[in-house]
Design a protein around this nucleic acid. Sequence first.
DNA 1: ACATACAGAACGAACGTTCGGTTTGTCCAG
DNA 2: CTGGACAAACCGAACGTTCGTTCTGTATGT
Lengths: 210, 210
Amino acid sequence: MEEALARKAGPASRKEQQAVVARERIVHAVVECLDQHGYAETSINRIQERAGISRGALTHHFPSKEELMVVTAERLLKPTLVPLRKGPRPMATPEERKATIEADIVWMWERLVDTREGRALLEILVASRTDLALKGRISETFSRWNHTISDSLVVNYLGLGVAEDELREIWTMCRVFLRGLNTQNQFEADEQARRALVRSFARMIAARLA
Amino acid sequence: MEEALARKAGPASRKEQQAVVARERIVHAVVECLDQHGYAETSINRIQERAGISRGALTHHFPSKEELMVVTAERLLKPTLVPLRKGPRPMATPEERKATIEADIVWMWERLVDTREGRALLEILVASRTDLALKGRISETFSRWNHTISDSLVVNYLGLGVAEDELREIWTMCRVFLRGLNTQNQFEADEQARRALVRSFARMIAARLA
DNA sequence: ACATACAGAACGAACGTTCGGTTTGTCCAG
DNA sequence: CTGGACAAACCGAACGTTCGTTCTGTATGT
C-alpha cells in the first residue's frame, strides 16, 4: 500500500513502465480503429494487429472488450478538460469578446471534435446508447465529464453579464451542435461548408453572449 | 412491361402485395432493432425473429445486409420530406412568426428526431461513416435528401426578409443541433433538460429569423 | 521465489451468406 | 373453365469466418 503510493510519486519501476507503455499503445490503437473502422468493426484482432501486440498481452492488460472501451473513453475525455486555450485572451471591448468566443468555438471544433479522438468518442457514445453493459460502466464518467466541463466553461466566461444558468445552457448547445456536426459528413461532403457552418454558429453564439 | 406499368396503377396482384407486406414488416423490424440494439447488434437473426419471418424469406427479399440497410435508410428519410406541419400557420406579426418557428423546431425534435426512426437513422448514419461499401450505396441518398429538405424549408420560410443562403444555413444548423442532441442522453439523462435545451435553441433561432 | 508481462493455441457461439427443396400465386394454351 | 408450366415466395439446413473469451505455457523483472 505505502509502497504503491511511494512509487506513484517517484519514477515507476521498469515493469510498471512496460505495462503503462503497452496499455498506452493499445488504447491508441483502439482510438485509431474506432475512427477508421467504427465501433462494430473494431475487433480484438484488429486492435492487436494495429498495436503490434500479441493476443495474450492484450487480454492480459484488458480482460474484456468492455474494459477496453471504458478505459479508452476515459482517456478520450481527459484531455478535453484542460483549460480552453493558452495565450492572452483579450476581452476588454465587446468586439474583442465576440472575436474571442468565436475563436474558442472554432478551436473546439478543430482541436477537439473534428479529430480522430472526437470521432472515436462519438463511436463509443453511440454504441453505449444500446450496449447496456457498457453504458452501465461508462455513463457516470460521461455525466461527470459533462458537469466538469460545464463548470470550467462557466468560470471562463463569467463576467460577461450573462447569468450562470444561461451560460451553462449556451455552452451545452455548443457541445451538442459540434457533436452533431461530426455526423454531417454524410450529408455534406464539402469540408469547407462545414467549417463555414461552425463559423456561422460561433457568430450566433458570440452575439448572444457578448 | 406494359403489364407491370398497368398493374402499378391499379391494385397490385396478390403476389406483389405479399412481397410488399413482407418487405415492410422486415424494414419495420430493422428500425426497431436499430433503435433498441444499435447497428452492431442488429443481426440478421434478430431481424428475422423480430419480423416473424423465416430466414429464407428475409434473404429472398434482401440478399445482403447492406441492401437491407440501404432500403431502411431510404424508408427513414422519406416521411421527413412531407411539408412541415398541417394547419394554419399564423405569421402576420413578428411575434407570431417567432412562435411559429419555435413550435416548428420543437415539432421536428419530438416528431422526427427523438423517435425510433430518428435514432435508427442515426445508427445507420454513424455506421456508414466507416462502412465504405454501405457509404458508397447510401451517400447519394443522404446528399439528395439534404438538398431536398433544405429547399423545402427555404420555401416555407421565405418572405421573412432573410436571404435564401442564410435561411439554408440556419436550418442546416437546426438539423445538426437536433442530431447532436440525439446523443446527449449519455451526458444528461434528464429528458426535461433536453427538451428545455430544444426550446432555448428554438428561441435563439426564432430571434435570428423573425 | 514469485508475481507480472507476454505469447499463442483452442473454444463455442454467432455472424452473414449460399443453396437445394417446397409451396403458392400467375398466366396462357387447350 | 381448366390444367400445367413457370416464376416468385418461402423455408431451413449447412457453410466458412470471425468474434470475444479462456486457458496453458514461457520469459522477465523484482
